[in-house]
């Protein structure tokens, strides 16, 4: 470990890095998302035109990434809360992180078909 740094490596640091990166990503998306939704006040056509881009295969892939970021941030956020408020939280932080990763993987596999199904049908023909 280099001298003069607070970074400690391992699960604790990397989960914090991932929490930070996903948090920023979600915030920037939310900003754009409020703007695109505001188009319902312009006209139904304007809104539907922009939402049509959300249905293209490339953006479907980005949506899957967004779901990945949100699910990790949400699950790891609950872990952070458990570390802070549950007396045994700090002792089990590592086990809780692997639980978070496991649940996240299961949910991501479950989201494959609902989020990407239509894109796969479009790219490879239905």
């Amino acid at each position: 470990m280099p001298a003069g740094t607070l970074y400690r490596g391992r699960e604790g640091m990397w989960s914090w890095v991932a929490h930070r990166v996903t948090g920023v990503l979600i915030f920037f998306f939310l900003f754009v998302h409020v703007l695109d939704t505001a188009l319902v006040r312009v006209s139904p056509e304007a809104y539907d035109t922009v939402v049509a881009t959300y249905k293209t295969p490339l953006v479907a892939l980005l949506e899957y990434g967004l779901v990945a970021a949100i699910l990790f941030h949400a699950l790891n956020g609950l872990r952070v809360i458990a570390v802070d408020f549950w007396a045994k939280g700090p002792r089990y932080q590592k086990q809780m992180l692997w639980t978070v990763v496991g649940v996240w993987l299961v949910l991501m596999i479950g989201a494959l078909y609902p989020v990407l199904g239509h894109a796969v049908r479009e790219v490879f023909g239905s």
Partner: peptide
């Protein structure tokens, strides 16, 4: 918005 009832494909002004 993304899973139930056809996922993202159903979203449009009428859905909102």
């Amino acid at each position: 918005q993304l899973v139930l009832d056809g996922g993202v494909s159903k979203i449009g002004f009428a859905f909102v």
